[in-house]
């Protein structure tokens, strides 16, 4: 059977950047409409979990971390990073479904819709960074400049991972409606398998090595190490991490290309 050819002499959208930005901006507007209170809800979730975990676990784990304030700050930074991942991938996964009209009644490159919803999560993350800064002021602690730089670098890598995951699970969610339940379990496993509320060092060496295979654990652990122990990730480790993230991005784009053509029919 011969293939299908579709050609237009002029592209239908000139400016994908503007398109993505507009979709993300309107998402943001909708969620935090007319009020600062809307944003409070977004930060409330990590704050409450922080309060409980800090209350329960700081007495257990603080001796390893060297002082209460480091435990609390590390916990909070870890939580914010993890929430970035979970909110971002959840929004990415549901993006095509929730904007079904934009998929089935009009032609837009579908990746713009997925990307817009992850950008919305990134904007929430950026505002959360302000809360992190407030925490540091509260605890009167200033991390080194290199540690902050590493944190920002890791945040960018985190975004790339979120985008890669979303490109795969957004079309899969259209195909399999129970994808969301599977993903919820995966996220929960990743949460406990990441050194967010416990220090990695308390575990046996081989378990540490296994846990660090999880990209979220890797990011959280080395962010905390840099900020509070002034211990930086080895260059080869970082290069390996960067390379595998890039490979994963390439893989996800291939998966996206394979999964996306039938998405409009399945909706």
């Amino acid at each position: 059977m011969s293939a299908f050819i579709y050609k237009t002499s002029e592209s239908r959208h000139e400016d994908y950047g503007h398109l993505i930005w507009m979709l993300a901006k309107m998402d943001f507007k909708l969620r935090y409409q007319n009020s600062f209170l809307g944003y409070i809800w977004a930060i409330l979730n990590p704050l409450l979990i922080f309060a409980v975990m800090n209350f329960v676990f700081s007495s257990i784990f603080s001796s390893h971390g060297g002082g209460d304030q480091f435990y609390s700050l590390g916990l909070f930074v870890g939580l914010i990073l993890f929430f970035f991942f979970s909110e971002g991938t959840n929004a990415g996964m549901r993006s095509l479904q929730s904007k079904a009209q934009l998929v089935s009644k009009i032609y837009l490159p579908r990746w713009t819709i997925i990307m817009a919803s992850t950008i919305h999560s990134a904007m929430v993350f950026l505002t959360n960074i302000i809360v992190i800064i407030l925490f540091f002021i509260w605890y009167q602690y200033v991390p080194t400049f290199s540690a902050i730089l590493l944190f920002l670098l890791f945040s960018c890598l985190m975004y790339i991972i979120i985008l890669s995951v979303s490109m795969i699970i957004a079309p899969l969610f259209i195909k399999f409606r129970d994808m969301s339940m599977v993903w919820e379990v995966v996220l929960r496993v990743m949460f406990y398998a990441s050194p967010i509320f416990y220090p990695l060092q308390m575990l046996p060496e081989w378990i540490q090595q296994v846990l660090l295979m999880n990209p979220i654990a890797f990011i959280v652990h080395f962010t905390k190490e840099a900020m509070f122990n002034n211990h930086f990730v080895d260059l080869w480790q970082f290069v390996a991490f960067f390379a595998s993230s890039s490979l994963f991005l390439l893989f996800s784009l291939q998966a996206y290309k394979k999964l996306i053509p039938k998405v409009a029919e399945r909706l």
Binding site: M1, F4, I5, Y6, V103, P261, K262, A264
Partner: peptide, 12 residues
């Protein structure tokens, strides 16, 4: 461009 055809050609 919402659906892809199985075969054939569309030029615009």
């Amino acid at each position: 461009g919402v659906y892809l055809g199985d075969c054939g050609e569309v030029y615009i």
